[in-house]
Simulated scan of single mutants.
Amino acid sequence: MLAPERTALILLAAGRSLRFTHADKLAEPFLDKPLAYHLVTALENIPFLTRIAVVSCTSLDFAARGYRVEENPDPMLGQARSLNHGVAVAREAGAEAVLVALADMPRVTATHVYRMFDAANGADTNVASSDGVQPRPPALFGANLFDDLLALEGDEGARDLIRRGHHVVTSPAELVDVDTREDLEELRKLYGLPTDGK
């Protein structure tokens, strides 16, 4: 059985945010804290073997939140480069699996992540999230898939690998990711907090 204690959390936080007008998207306020800290907070009590944040050009201090911070030396090469780097660090740390999460998905819950572990299949684990239509991160991969993850290239990340895996369905609202300023404004409208503002 795969357990969090033998799993490395890889937080991908090195996106170039080109669709977000070049701002530090992850530091943007949402519900009175930086956008990226919502997922960090949601998963902070899961006893992962290690936590790895792969970053580029963000002002956020993930180290203060218990993460080993790894700078992506080549963010222009796409999301796969961040994933390659995170998996290599996780393998060095002795991880038997990796949970790959995106820092711009602020509504993911620990409950959903534990459901993913319930669906795990040891070293062959390939479990992704789904809104019932489209599979996406967070995704959980066992050690037998590390070589596949390390071989990925470009901006597609592990999309093809995720499509072939087992999918744990949750609410579409939980799997919202913030790519554009409009996406963030839509989330803010749902809560209507005046402190999230301009």
Rank of each mutant, 00 (worst) to 15 (best):
L2Y: 06
A3K: 14
A8T: 07
L11V: 08
A13S: 07
A14D: 15
A14T: 10
G15I: 10
S17Q: 03
R19Q: 04
R19G: 01
A23W: 12
K25D: 01
A27G: 07
L31H: 02
D32G: 09
K33E: 03
Y37G: 00
V40C: 02
A42S: 06
L43D: 04
L43A: 00
I46W: 05
I46Y: 00
P47G: 10
P47Q: 12
F48L: 04
L49C: 08
T50W: 03
T50Y: 02
R51A: 01
I52C: 05
I52W: 04
S56Q: 03
D61Q: 00
D61H: 02
A63L: 01
A64E: 02
G66N: 04
R68S: 03
V69E: 02
D74V: 13
P75I: 04
M76L: 13
A80Y: 12
R81M: 13
R81Q: 13
S82W: 01
N84M: 08
H85L: 14
G86F: 11
A88C: 09
R91L: 09
A93G: 06
E96Y: 06
A97P: 07
A97F: 12
V98N: 10
L99H: 09
L99D: 12
A101I: 08
D104I: 06
D104L: 01
D104G: 04
P106S: 03
P106G: 03
P106C: 02
V108G: 04
A110Y: 00
T111V: 12
T111N: 09
V113Q: 07
Y114R: 12
R115H: 08
M116H: 10
D118E: 15
A119V: 13
A119P: 10
A120N: 11
G122C: 01
D124Y: 06
A128N: 10
A128I: 12
D131E: 07
D131Q: 05
G132A: 06
V133N: 10
Q134A: 14
Q134L: 15
P135S: 14
P138C: 11
L140W: 14
N144K: 15
G154F: 08
R163F: 13
R163A: 14
R163D: 15
R163M: 13
H166L: 15
H167S: 11
V169H: 13
T170D: 14
S171L: 10
P172Y: 05
P172F: 01
A173L: 08
L175A: 06
V176H: 04
D177G: 06
D177V: 03
V178E: 01
R181K: 09
D183A: 04
E185K: 08
E186T: 07
R188L: 05
R188S: 01
K189D: 14
L193H: 06
L193I: 05
T195G: 05
